[in-house]
Amino acid sequence: MSFLSGMKKVALGAVLAGTAATTAGAVELRGWNIHVEDYPVSIAMDSFMAEVAERTNGDVTGKTYHNGVLGSQPDAIEQIRLGVIDFGEFSLGPMGQSIPETNVVSLPFIFKSIPQMYELMDGAVGDAIGEGMKAKGIVPLGWYDAGARSFYNSVRPINTPADVEGLKIRVMSNDLFVKMVESMDGNATPMAFAEVYQSIKTGVVDGAENNPPSYDSTNHFEVAKYYSLTEHLIIPECLCMSLKSWEKLTADQQEILKDAGHKSAVLQRELWAAREAKSMETVKAGGTEVNTIADKAPFQAAMAPVYESFLANNPDLTGLVDMIRNAD
């Protein structure tokens, strides 16, 4: 698929007009964000841009457009790569179809915990993934937290892989997630996130998988009362910038953006943890039956075919996968 498909997207790019505007040395950036203004991601992004403006003495300013007003996530990723939008915050999941390195973090159970994910993404693993992104026109500035994704459904608690058998589970549109559910003999159903509530309510699917704030804020807990903490996916998100926009900055400005990006990630992680705890309280108060998985080893073992298939198709990423799996 080409970066732009026809004149329609060219017109969209012209409307967005997000390329870094430069006047007498000043740079004004335009940022994309899918979330509402009081979401942890949104607050951290606003903090990032405020710090950049202050530390550059107003030479680099900008605005984050929340609520997805600059388009859908797939379109925005294209626009970032083209330099039409200057910066944005994206899940690495949707990037995996076009940037293989980002798909590594979508492998089930590849991270052992959220703290381990922080450590690895802030180090050599994040650097390696960042190089793959840069080759596709995207520069990472900070790694945000999207929590751990777990299964929820309207039928039964999930304690072992056998409990997934026969369940119709909505997944994001990524072959890895389809294979993940199929490896436990479940029926994976990719569909738009906006369709999930009604689909569970009407029995089109039995459930889905997501982090606690998403399970809470969408009211999915009203129609899927069993929330099983498999924590099978820990997929970081990226505050990132268009390489085209990045290259218009001075070296000093680039250093300021990188430092401010990391600081915004630290803030976002703190805000996310608080939001996650509040969401768990909300869904439990709403009648959700939450169960913790005592032994995740059977789930991890069931993922062997997913890893085998992925590495067979991406042998050059074996070293990166091993770097994460062998980390303490």
Rank of each mutant, 00 (worst) to 15 (best):
K9E: 15
V10P: 04
A11H: 13
V15I: 15
T22H: 09
T22M: 12
E37K: 05
Y39F: 03
S47T: 09
A53K: 04
T56K: 02
Y65F: 11
V69P: 06
Q73E: 14
A76D: 06
E78H: 14
Q79A: 15
G83E: 15
E89H: 11
F90S: 02
G96T: 01
Q97A: 14
P100I: 02
T102G: 01
S113K: 08
G132A: 00
M133A: 00
L141M: 07
L141R: 05
G142Q: 09
G147M: 12
Y152K: 10
V155P: 04
R156C: 07
P157I: 01
I158W: 00
T160E: 03
P161D: 00
A162T: 14
G166T: 13
G166Q: 11
F177N: 12
V181E: 04
G186L: 12
G186P: 00
A188K: 04
P190A: 01
M191I: 00
A192S: 07
E195H: 09
Y215Q: 12
D216M: 05
H220M: 11
E222Y: 06
K225Q: 12
Y227F: 09
Y227V: 14
T230D: 13
L243I: 11
S245M: 06
E255R: 14
A260F: 00
V266R: 10
V266N: 09
Q268T: 08
Q268M: 10
R269E: 10
E270L: 02
E270H: 05
L271K: 03
L271M: 04
S279W: 04
G286W: 03
G286H: 07
G287H: 02
T288V: 02
V290F: 10
N291Q: 10
I293H: 10
P298I: 12
A302Q: 07
V306F: 01
Y307T: 12
A312Y: 09
N314Q: 09
D316H: 10
G319S: 02
